[in-house]
Design a binder for these strands. Sequence first.
DNA 1: GTGAAAGCGCTAACAG
DNA 2: CTGTTAGCGCTTTCAC
Lengths: 338, 338
Amino acid sequence: MATIEDVAKLAGLSRTTVSRVINNHPYVSEAKKQLVIEAMKQLGYVPNSSARSLRNQKTEMIAVIIPRVMNPFFGQLVESLEIAASEYHYQLIVCQTLYSAKKELDYLNLLKTKQVDGVILTTLLNDWKQIEPFLDYGPIVLCNEYDQKANIPMVHIDQEYGGYVATTHLIDQGHMRIAYCCGNIKSNVTKAREKGFRKAHSEHGLQIDPKLVFQNVFTFEDGKKVLQKLAALDNRPTAIFTGSDEVAAGVISEAKKLGIDVPTQLAVVGYDNQAITELLDPMITTVHQPVKEMAHKAMNVMMNQIKYKNYKTKEVYQLPLSLIIRNSTCLKSPERLN
Amino acid sequence: MATIEDVAKLAGLSRTTVSRVINNHPYVSEAKKQLVIEAMKQLGYVPNSSARSLRNQKTEMIAVIIPRVMNPFFGQLVESLEIAASEYHYQLIVCQTLYSAKKELDYLNLLKTKQVDGVILTTLLNDWKQIEPFLDYGPIVLCNEYDQKANIPMVHIDQEYGGYVATTHLIDQGHMRIAYCCGNIKSNVTKAREKGFRKAHSEHGLQIDPKLVFQNVFTFEDGKKVLQKLAALDNRPTAIFTGSDEVAAGVISEAKKLGIDVPTQLAVVGYDNQAITELLDPMITTVHQPVKEMAHKAMNVMMNQIKYKNYKTKEVYQLPLSLIIRNSTCLKSPERLN
DNA sequence: GTGAAAGCGCTAACAG
DNA sequence: CTGTTAGCGCTTTCAC
């Protein structure tokens, strides 16, 4: 493989001049520049990126830590992050924790070993205390996840409003007994959503029945099970807020099987606005999260972190979301509430 | 950041000895080994991976080139490839072409610049002639895609059998007019599938009506459009083979809208066995592809390529697939054909 | 067993 | 405008 030295020799110049041409430095005469370009072409020369990384102390790689790619929300996030990264000529490394806190820490080591210039965390499996020491080695940006204690940039979505707007929509439709499903109760994303759910209730003077609250509900199957439990209740709810479209799909599927009509007997709200919401009958009312915008903002913030190296400054960016009303909560009116 | 030099000084030893400890070399006395370990711990030392990459001429990174993460098939492939890579202590870089042949070439440059030890190609947007020169810089493995002309390892699935088994299933159900949708006609994956479709027909002495063949059908929306065209036909088909579950879902959705019953008036076969096949009513008969196995095999082959550096040897691994029969093609009998 | 020294390929003072 | 030189942090001969 040709090196910069080879190019220099062939062009009859020094390594420095070649380097200058590669890096578009000024003060290289046009004549020599052409000489260098010619020599590079002739040798098929491409700079070695390990050498550059070592010398420049940067790798132009970002790691993104997610639970798993097949989770539609995180898949979409990775897709958008990769597109954003490539706009900055950065490469994206995918790191799947598979919900293991230890793997999260393992992947953070990429920062210590300088394999990446920064890490984007999309969930937080460990306590902030465990994460913080890694900041000595490079920037960490929270994207989607939020932590009050963290002294770093975070780009996230207003989940409290998400819970609030969806619940308010149900209450406006006349529902007074609303079931609630959420995912990982330890996540601040989940907590904020629940806060919004509670706020909507208290604003309307409504109580929440603890029997209607379910935790750690993630999948289609989980959704089915929740519906079975609800169906067995004496005093059934007339609506349900689910933490994800998959769960909503499970609820609807099982409701159909048991002859419970959606939305007339049970209104269902999903979350994430995944493709599936438009494929089912009825189509699912859901909360749209601005994933692309979040990804771009997070990458933008990351680039600034890399540039200005102020890794331990808290910066909070909160993005709005919107409710998309479809037939799983009401028979007509496809409006969009902001 | 502590370097190997710092560790050596603190331990009162040479860089060499420290390096030996890091790399688990024999011939280091236990006493000094402990000294080094102690010093490393005290300094929070971690070896710099750019320096190692430069010295060792390997990065322990693999790039995988896919169209996009949100395509469920490729999302699943990335998920499995990342898991496989991490078992070898390799990192995975995601590269999305967004169906641009130029981006495919751009990402192959990661090989030239030595940013990765190898590239896994899952589709082929360029001619093999365009790709081949990159083999001078490192290994390329084809995973999912297949090309007769390529002189490299390829791990793929027996798509011809996929087309064959699905079509035979339809014929066995008594269908004689079967519509056919496929994706990118230039892909060998697509071609093989069609070959199987044709083979099943000729084995049963059946003709294929060109009016029933559709190309470049990828999405849910595309599926809807295909059904609309079929519905407008004088002589409608009684079954349809689609290239993906999404398309099948679109066909079924539109059929419902037009009052065409699935499966009695139109039997529908999907492809990929994505989650959605079990969420819809009717559940979709589909072809299951062994994605995890393919990913593991591809990564395994890649590791051998890196080790033995015989980049230009053709090796073909073909994996079997199976038909999963659900209600979109027949009302009962949930069997599984191999 | 251990260390000195060369060098992986590149960039950036610094000097001219 | 151009070249000389000194490393970036690590591993590996080659001596001892």
